[in-house]
Design a protein around this nucleic acid. Structure first.
Lengths: 192, 192
DNA sequence: CTATTAAACAAACACTTGTTTGTTTAGTCA
DNA sequence: TGACTAAACAAACAAGTGTTTGTTTAATAG
């Protein structure tokens, strides 16, 4: 272990973690550099030794978040063969990532790329990396001809995204169960 | 017609309309009083003759928006009897309202009550007025026992809400068709 | 015509924003 | 020990925020 790098990385990671938690909770614009500085116990200006700008800070979070969610998502669906079971597992993993306030993954779904004009293209590219994974999950479903896979994907993604506004760990359902339930609502006939 | 009132109301309405369009397009915090002033052609300070604060301006928009969407929504489902057809019509009306950028109704779904701490409770109350209407629509559906109406409602609402981020009038589907499609995705078996 | 008021302007207010600068402290390495 | 550098501090900067104030214009009503 390199002592210098370790200490440096630990402060660097502390910044990333604190910023991610604040961005996820309050949004990008609503979080000030002073908020972040206070969270890690340093002065606002000191952050600029580690990151060139607030925008760059978000970019780093986004990248880490996408890497993490793609890995989690892929791992969740990998052991399953049935397309519908894979969708259920994928949705469960997705809702988990979105509603985990202490994770960098939730930032991806909370902060819109348009909030950061400087890196809008890069952020969209990061998002696409995950959404491509999700798209394949939907595209492998055996669907009736009248179903539009594009709209189905957007519906599931929208429902998941929205969970971040109402989900509570104290609620009646766990994040996993919500994701699984959503997948089943579009899978099976729900009326009688 | 009262000339004085007419002129006064026209300026007042112009402010409401311009602010609503900007709030819907950019969000509440991202829209400045200077933006709104420029849109109606007056100086920032002049707005305060008509509205006491930026928060009050939003409150007025929210109230008008809720009145409008509840009326539109109720009118859309009123002539129908079948619960599933009522859901389709309701979802169509909802997506229409959410994606209509020139309407005050979209503000309700774009601006989160937490963005305006001073009136958070009031804004939530306004939202609830509409969501109660939507809740009855879901609650009258004949559902299998395994289906949770609560989660079904949140899924539909989330999918609709999300449409504001990706909907384009130049897209493959009209707002109506999207709403109807969403309703059918949870209604009929979509796999084969 | 005159008194009143609606409606706007022009300018500043106090505050917050992201960021920059110059300096100091503490630890590393030859 | 002495040179170097990582890492932070303290303080200010320019720009933008919502809002307030005093004043002017223009229309209305008695």
């Amino acid at each position: 272990m390199d002592a210098k790098a370790t200490r440096s990385n630990s402060r660097n990671d502390a910044l990333l973690d604190a910023a991610a938690e604040l961005f996820a909770a309050q949004g990008f614009k609503a979080t000030s550099m002073r908020d972040i500085a206070k969270a890690v116990g340093m002065l606002p200006g000191s952050i600029y030794y580690h990151f060139a700008s607030k925008d760059d800070l978000l970019l780093a979070i986004y990248e880490a978040g996408v890497d993490q969610i793609t890995a989690t998502f892929a791992a969740a669906i990998a052991p399953l063969d049935d397309p519908w079971l894979r969708l259920e597992a994928g949705m469960a993993a997705l809702i988990r990532a979105i509603t985990d306030a202490s994770s960098t993954t939730s930032v991806i779904f909370k902060v819109e790329p348009s909030d950061v004009p400087k890196y809008e293209a890069e952020l969209i590219a990061f998002r696409d990396k995950f959404e491509a994974l999700f798209r394949t999950l939907v595209d492998e479903l055996p669907l009736h001809a009248w179903v539009d896979p594009h709209l189905l994907r957007l519906m599931l993604l929208g429902a998941a995204n929205h969970a971040q506004l109402w989900y509570s760990p104290k609620g009646r359902f766990a994040a996993d169960e919500i994701g699984q339930h959503f997948a089943r609502l579009v899978q099976a006939p729900i009326g009688r």
